[in-house]
Write a protein that binds this DNA or RNA. Structure first.
Lengths: 212, 212
DNA sequence: AAGCAACTACCACCAAAGTAGTATTTTTAT
DNA sequence: ATAAAAATACTACTTTGGTGGTAGTTGCTT
């Protein structure tokens, strides 16, 4: 029977042993390597091309994210699943940005871990249960408390239209006012938001998710 | 013992019955209402304020999303969990945008459903297992194959600087070339990307994640 | 060697954007 | 009822942006 090969990357030997032990109980999985740093991980991976790499985030030397990024840049087909204690939002988002194939928490139940590992090997993206909320949250519209409230309706309208690439003339036509008035609104909203140009305004709108 | 109250919103009576039956097996949950449209859902919710609303997406009349949006706009404390057959990405994203408290698939296992419902009631965001991948995917950087490859180095540089709000003069200074040359690059890149102005260029850069 | 793409530059022109100041009307808040 | 804020408009002016055409230089490809 074909076994899936796994590389463990973590600078805590005890933890590696624990995970290795757990995996050894499964006869379709096999730990073919254990390393304690990002550099070793990369070296091992290019040589042995494991099916899956379980990668700790917090390591001395190359950070987990850097390692992930390096692995993904190299021509490596191994799935790389982050295995971390951190449920920190930016860590997760970073990992995602670098195309991790999963993000599992170290305090997962053993059965869950094994199950998710199996899923990851067949190409599914896996993530620990408690993190789904964080993922979801980061997709949500920002809680707006901000300076946007200092803008008048018309100014917000103008801002949105600027961000949609409209010229002053087009905005004027759309709002049924003169171009002169549009300019007034622009000037005021630029001042309120501390912007120098409509391009900056457009970018501001994007950042603050103000758009049609 | 305190029971959590649930409102079912779905235009298929049979399905409602099935879910109601399932829920009735749990003694900490209680279905206090079943309705078949968004309007009824809103009316019921404001009057009886259930702890949880299970909301179908595909309904006649008010769509699920509209209902969700209306519920969230009203001063309603009920958790609203989408209960749908659709694993369509845009549906999920839309629901998220309107701050749904969860998104469950109708073909979930009964036990999973009950478990997730319980989690949702205590305020956790819940989502059916198979959808985590979709969530994750939508957070990832876009697969770039695109037109950006048709741009020259200089054009890309210009584009990035435009997107950072720089004027032509500033770009010229930064790149050590004349403003005239900057304009040439702009003109060419606008043409290649089919853009009318630097604002559109900035927005294009955002969409295609081309930035410094 | 000829050809091509990229980068540079300049000119001339016109359109668009932005600034300042003044002023009227409408809406909103006190 | 009165004051303040918002929306509208205009003039006049300066700066910035965008288009068209021409052209020289470099480096790579065939």
């Amino acid at each position: 029977m074909k076994q899936a090969s796994i590389l463990l990357v973590d600078d805590h030997p005890m933890l590696r042993k624990g995970v290795a032990q757990l995996i050894s109980l499964e006869d379709n999985l096999k730990v073919i390597g254990e390393v304690s740093s990002g550099d070793e991980a990369i070296a091992f991976a290019v040589k042995n091309m494991p099916d899956l790499i379980l990668l700790d985030l917090n390591m001395k030397g190359l950070s987990g994210t850097e390692t992930l990024s390096a692995l993904k840049r190299a021509n490596i087909t191994s799935k790389v699943v982050i295995f971390s204690v951190s449920d920190n939002e930016t860590d997760i988002l970073q990992a995602l940005k670098f195309n991790a194939d999963g993000y599992l928490l170290k305090d997962s139940e053993p059965e869950e871990l094994i199950e998710k590992i199996n899923h990851a090997i067949i190409g599914e993206f896996v993530i620990s249960e408690p993190l789904t909320q964080i993922l979801a949250k980061s997709l949500r519209p920002q809680n707006r408390v901000s300076v946007i409230d200092s803008l008048t309706q018309r100014e917000v309208e103008n801002l949105k239209l600027i961000a949609s690439g409209k010229s002053n003339k087009e905005i004027a036509r759309k709002l049924g006012i003169t171009e002169a008035t549009v300019k007034v609104h622009n000037k005021n909203l630029f001042k309120k938001l501390g912007l120098k140009s409509r391009v900056e305004a457009a970018m501001w709108a994007v950042e603050h998710k103000v758009s049609h």
